[in-house]
Design a protein around this nucleic acid. Structure first.
Length: 130
DNA sequence: CGTTTGTGGATGC
DNA sequence: GCATCCACAAACG
């Protein structure tokens, strides 16, 4: 049993557009610590899905950004991905700024400089042993 | 590096 | 129920 006493999750569950699948995606996203990012594919496996596009589909419609750290999600090739329903534009610039502010080293084009900043679900990596 | 195929959920009809 | 779209990914050229 999971403790869902967070008001944020309450708001998510209250949203009619949010399905069980999206709930899992957002929930897994909240597991990503600050200063780290994850990929759509990794999130997909986390929620028991074989399609990263399904995850991206959920994040695209994420009405809780940036309360839900959808900006911590990048593509498998370490590209910036999308934000606020857009894959390019001023929203992307904000996404880069957010990640940079959290300590995630990004290239000028939004590409992740250190692949080690990608969070891996499952094995609890030691944070601070860097 | 560009193109194509696979995949899975959401939405429209 | 089928067709189409999508903030992806991996394979192929």
């Amino acid at each position: 049993m999971k403790k869902n006493s967070d008001p944020l999750r309450e708001k998510i569950a209250c949203h009619p557009q949010v399905t069980a699948f999206r709930l899992k995606v957002y929930g897994a996203l909240l597991e990503v610590p600050k200063g780290y990012v994850t990929t759509y594919g990794r999130l997909a496996r986390r929620v028991g899905c074989g399609s990263a596009q399904a995850v991206g589909n959920a994040l695209r419609a994420n009405p809780f950004a940036p309360e839900v750290p959808c900006h911590r999600v990048v593509a498998a090739d370490l590209s910036i991905g999308g934000f606020c329903g857009r894959r390019a534009g001023d929203e992307i610039a904000r996404k880069i700024a957010l990640l940079t502010a959290e300590g995630v080293p990004l290239d000028a084009a939004g590409r992740l400089r250190d692949a080690r900043r990608v969070w891996s679900f499952g094995p609890r990596q030691k944070q601070g042993s860097e």
